[in-house]
Each structure stands twice: as structure tokens, then as C-alpha cells.
Simulated assay, not measured.
Amino acid sequence: MFTGSIGGLGLERCLAEAGDEDGFVAFVHRLLPEPDEELIRRIAGIVGETCEFDDGFVELTERRKARR
């Protein structure tokens, strides 16, 4: 939602660092410092409400733990 797509090491870093919403916001802010953290949080909230995801945050976290 912020970079168009992410993969490889960037994705691995995001999954490793962003264990919750606050971690995700901090990760994106370090990657893209121009939008402030409140704007990042609002955009992520809108995307979460308007897009349908097959997995929720808990499922993604569990999948990440299983890969370790």
C-alpha cells in the first residue's frame, strides 16, 4: 500500500520487525519518512477496512512463527 509491492529482503525485514500495528507503522516510517506515523496508521486502517484479506494479522503472525 505504501511502496506498491515488497518482496525479498524488504518483506523479510518487515515480517521480522512488524509484530503488531505499532511495529508496522514504525517500519514503514523508517522506510518512507515523509508521511508521519499518524498518516501511515490512518492509511493502513483504511486499507484494512476496505480490502479483503485471506489472512488476518493473527494468521500472518502464526504463519511467520511456523516458518522459523
Rank of each mutant, 00 (worst) to 15 (best):
A66S: 14
G19Y: 00
L31V: 12
E17I: 01
A44K: 02
E21N: 12
D36Q: 07
C14P: 00
P33A: 09
G56N: 14
P35S: 09
R68F: 00
L60V: 14
H29R: 10
F27G: 00
F24E: 03
D54Q: 13
R64F: 09
D20M: 02
G23L: 08
R41Y: 06
M1G: 15
V47N: 11
V58S: 11
V58R: 11
L39W: 00
A18E: 05
E49S: 10
I40W: 01
L15A: 15
E34F: 06
G45F: 00
L11N: 06
D20L: 01
A18Q: 03
P33D: 05
E17P: 01
K65Q: 06
R67N: 09
C51R: 15
E62G: 01
G19W: 00
G56R: 07
D55Q: 15
V58I: 13
V47H: 11
E12W: 05
G8F: 05
I43M: 02
F2N: 04
L9W: 02
A66L: 10
E37K: 11
C51V: 14
I6M: 13
L11F: 03
T50E: 15
A66G: 11
H29Y: 00
F2P: 05
G56F: 11
V28E: 00
I6R: 05
G48Q: 03
T3L: 15
L32I: 13
I46N: 04
L15N: 08
I43A: 07
A66T: 12
G56A: 14
V58D: 08
I43P: 03
D36V: 04
E12N: 14
E38Y: 06
E49K: 08
A26R: 08
L31I: 02
E59N: 09
G45P: 04
I46G: 10
V47G: 09
R13M: 08
L31S: 07
D20Y: 05
D55R: 15
E49N: 10
D22W: 00
G56L: 09
F53L: 14
G7D: 08
L9R: 13
T3D: 15
C51T: 11
H29D: 07
R41S: 11
R63A: 15
L60T: 07
F24R: 05
T50L: 11
R67D: 12
M1I: 15
G48S: 09
L15C: 09
T61S: 14
F2Q: 06
E59Y: 08
F24P: 01
L11W: 06
A26Y: 04
A44I: 11
F57L: 11
L31K: 04
E52N: 01
L15E: 09
I46W: 10
S5Q: 12
A44G: 10
R67G: 04
I46E: 10
L31Y: 10
G8P: 03
D20I: 02
F2L: 07
E38L: 09
L9C: 12
